[in-house]
Design a protein around this nucleic acid. Structure first.
Lengths: 249, 249
DNA sequence: GCTCTTTGTGTCATTTTAACACTTTCAAAT
DNA sequence: ATTTGAAAGTGTTAAAATGACACAAAGAGC
């Protein structure tokens, strides 16, 4: 027997299963990811927010709890990416020594279940929170290395996001409630990682009827102020009822 | 400490992590799934082939091993669907009692990592193998219940398959090397669960250049014999190099 | 040679796509 | 007041893709 059977396992960590979260944000220019940093011998090392689950906890709940504990972000919809479980995932020495310092069983085989989400960066400024020292937005394209297998997880998350945005209007989660078509345009270009013709993009979005234009314009900008739009959830739901699941980008 | 730390964990099962496999087959008429059956108090109960992983084993390897052990199927490409881990997944009494009979720690919290694959049914006839008594093809649409959370897993696998076939030519894995366009057509209809116009379907497939027609026809059929085709991998790879990832169904 | 069954094929009207450039509006600077 | 810079906003056209639709051809079995 490898572990004792407890009838009441509440509040007991499961040493074999963790969750990690890939949180994307958009600064109107490029995609960012929320990472936490830890000190290591050779400087700062970034990691995705993640930790072991409790034995009686739903995976989805665990992801939400861990994210909140490490970054303060609460009540966001996390979607599962998949499980990552290379038995040799702890290959770097810095990972090993860090685990020694935080885990009761640093040598245990861990498989991790990864989640991703898209949030409005304006809603979450790590600088302003009590977690300021540990959580940080980093442009996705600048990341070269992360702890454990987190870099792999990030790549998978990017690919999944790219796939998903062609199928569901998740992009709107990255923008404020009121946004301009240019912002939306830039967002799609960032995620799909290719240029999209401005006029064709606008035409397509407007034809789909998934945005509604407000009576309001940008102000204070040193150029022609843009019309503001909102995501039109109702029209989108109508679309899906006819089996719509392809935005055609 | 919940379990002892072993330096050499080889051949030791990890009580918290299992894998389950959803294997789809196509009988030229409808989709089928490979299930194993177990005896229970109230008759026969079907389950997906699955079991605990070893502590030092890659998840993907574990899935292949378990599948081979339970069904004899080897060397097939399994793609991960995701992790399923409701702490209450063992809700049915029959599940509980079955676990008692096969697991060292029947009460342990298990999260399972699900995989799916598509195979040619002709390549695998459970009746003919030594596993005949336990493995069986069942039409997907006739399945109403499975052990544990396997029914959920199956639904997720179906949805994933539907998504995937619009993006990658995985359907060909379900057909023999030489097939007719009608078979391919029926396959797409089965997976997408909607009728597709025959002529438009054929036009699209042929325009994409992903099938090549052979010099060979069906024979022995009591009607006009059909041209045989093969999947044209080379042309498909060319397509992907231009970023092609949408078959437009 | 008749019947049954499935294969295989073409057109047309409509919609969608991709490519492409110039004017408008505002704030800031002069 | 005028200029400048910067992004917003807008339309046409040719080519391609889509969806709807019906009948002749080929073989096996009787």
């Amino acid at each position: 027997m490898r572990k004792e059977i407890k009838k009441n396992a509440t509040l007991e960590l499961n040493p074999n299963v963790s969750v990690d979260c890939v949180i994307f944000g958009f600064d109107f220019d490029k995609l960012n990811v929320l990472v936490i940093n830890r000190e290591s011998v050779d400087g700062v090392q970034w990691a995705l927010p993640g930790n072991l689950i409790y034995d009686d906890e739903h995976l989805d709940q665990a992801a939400n709890r861990v994210l909140a504990e490490l970054t303060g972000l609460k009540h966001i919809y996390l979607e599962q990416i998949g499980a990552f479980g290379d038995p040799n995932r702890i290959s770097k020495e810095s990972d090993r020594s860090w685990l020694q310092s935080i885990r009761a069983q640093p040598e245990a085989r861990v498989i991790t279940v990864a989640y991703f989400s898209l949030v409005k960066m304006e809603d979450y400024q790590p600088q302003a929170s009590s977690f300021a020292k540990s959580a940080e937005w980093i442009p996705v394209n600048e990341i070269r290395e992360l702890a454990f297998d987190h870099f792999d997880i990030l790549q998978t998350a990017k690919a999944r996001l790219k796939q998903m945005i062609k199928i569901r209007p998740i992009g709107f989660n990255l923008l404020p409630e009121k946004f301009t078509l240019s912002q939306l345009h830039k967002l799609y270009e960032s995620i799909l990682d290719k240029p999209l013709d401005k006029r064709n993009f606008r035409r397509k979005i407007q034809k789909l009827n998934i945005v509604m234009s407000l009576e309001e314009k940008q102000s204070g900008v040193p150029h022609k102020p843009s019309q503001l739009f909102m995501f039109d959830k109702e029209h989108y739901l109508l679309l899906t009822q006819n089996g719509f699941d392809n935005f055609g980008f």
